[in-house]
Nucleic acid binder design. Structure first.
Lengths: 229, 229
DNA sequence: ATAAATATTTAGGCGAATCTAAATAAATAA
DNA sequence: TTATTTATTTAGATTCGCCTAAATATTTAT
């Protein structure tokens, strides 16, 4: 029953996971080919193999969706990816934007013990450095009530939980404002004219543009999040 | 010039490194096949590819040795393997005998930055949990001088790296004293009369006979001897 | 509704890394 | 020294993951 899944197969399962939703569980060959930086024919090839292994549900010309087993594998991979990202940022002091390629390799290490020891070592983090939720061992993913800073209430302690645009350029830009994951922000004023915000970070006041505020996700401090299977 | 080396190629280079010495730099196909748990024909195949890439020196029917580039690659892999072992034992609290398979996977992660950040995080350890020296970034390896516990200095942290007599009886005997590979031992006293030693293992003091001390190899913890290029 | 454009699959091939079986070279024993 | 045994290499097949080119299905536009 437990067949082993190759790194390449894991990557496809992850890509399918990221390209689908509960409402729209099917993804097309072309979309997947773009996502995987490969050719549609290669995707068809792989999908047929994954279908053989019952990791996906596939109907010719119609698209592909994850089976329960496929979703499970994808979530395991994502869990490992995000745990490693926490390790790389919090303990090896990599910057936000430098960790993705390395985590992309580390996520394929096979060892349940390793993953769980790492999770303990990191103190069971709930989110990765980009604010994305870390699936549990059992495959439950927290649904974060992501709110854009632009839509957040004034005079309320907020916690930065992630970014919309995770490009290296944007992340480096945020560094200049001393904005990072977990940072507490409070909005003092919202300028009607240009939508810019007067905020304080660690007691220091500064003004940031609407563009930034529209790409920063926050949570109201001490607000718990719901979980879904 | 910098061709990329596959995990499988890295494993072969490592195996050649471990099967050769400066005095005897050639290793045979059969020995390598045993080492790699594969068939001689597969070894010949791979060696011919490595030879194409100038990573080994190969003469048909005569055996294979590492080129400078091949040795360099092997040492990089071994460096990563041993650094990860330190991480797994010291920070994730794995036992010394459980880390090999995991490190076997982690050693193939490609990222110079990762290796160096890890080295810093670990505090530039000189040896792995088995007492084997960690090659430097530049490819220098400490030469292990196998020392018998009987000849080791007092009041110095020592690591058990092997046994002279590896009979099951002797190993079971060692278990009673909680002595195993990687265990840290410190000698407090050497009795002149019978050569017995008062040692501590994990804080616990006990006395062992000269016979045992003459059959246990140790290294001085984190203290490599001479370096060779 | 039919033609044109687009998406998808099939067919055939390639390199990596393995295997088995056969051929050949080297080492050993009679 | 010659025959036999052992070691090594070659030949040919297989699987994975990718490719290009061609065939076919689906969608869109006229």
């Amino acid at each position: 029953m437990i067949r082993k899944i190759s790194p390449s197969e894991e990557n496809y399962l992850k890509a399918i996971f990221h390209s689908t939703t509960v409402q729209n569980p099917l993804v097309s060959t072309t979309v997947l080919a773009t996502e995987m930086q490969t050719k549609p024919s290669s995707v068809t090839d792989m999908i047929q193999r994954l279908s053989e292994k019952s990791l996906v549900n596939y109907t010719k010309y119609k698209g592909v969706s994850l089976s329960a087993a496929g979703r499970d594998s994808a979530l395991k991979t994502i869990r490992k990816h995000r745990l490693w990202e926490v390790f790389l940022v919090d303990h090896l002091h990599f910057s936000w934007d430098a960790v993705h390629d390395i985590a992309e390799q580390l996520e394929h290490i096979h060892s349940e013990a390793l993953t769980e020891h790492l999770d303990i070592f990191l103190g069971h983090p709930k989110t990765d450095p980009h604010g994305d939720p870390i699936p549990t061992k059992e495959g439950a993913v927290a649904v974060l009530s992501k709110t854009l800073l632009d839509h957040a209430p004034l005079h309320t302690p907020l916690i930065c939980i992630g970014v919309e645009d995770s490009s290296a350029a944007f992340l480096r830009f945020l560094d200049k404002f001393h904005i990072g994951l977990g940072v507490v922000i409070e909005i003092h004023e919202k300028e009607v004219f240009d939508g810019s915000l007067l905020i304080s970070i660690a007691g220091k006041q500064q003004r940031i543009s609407k563009q930034i505020a529209q790409h920063l996700y926050i949570n109201i401090k001490d607000t718990p999040c719901t979980h879904s299977k």
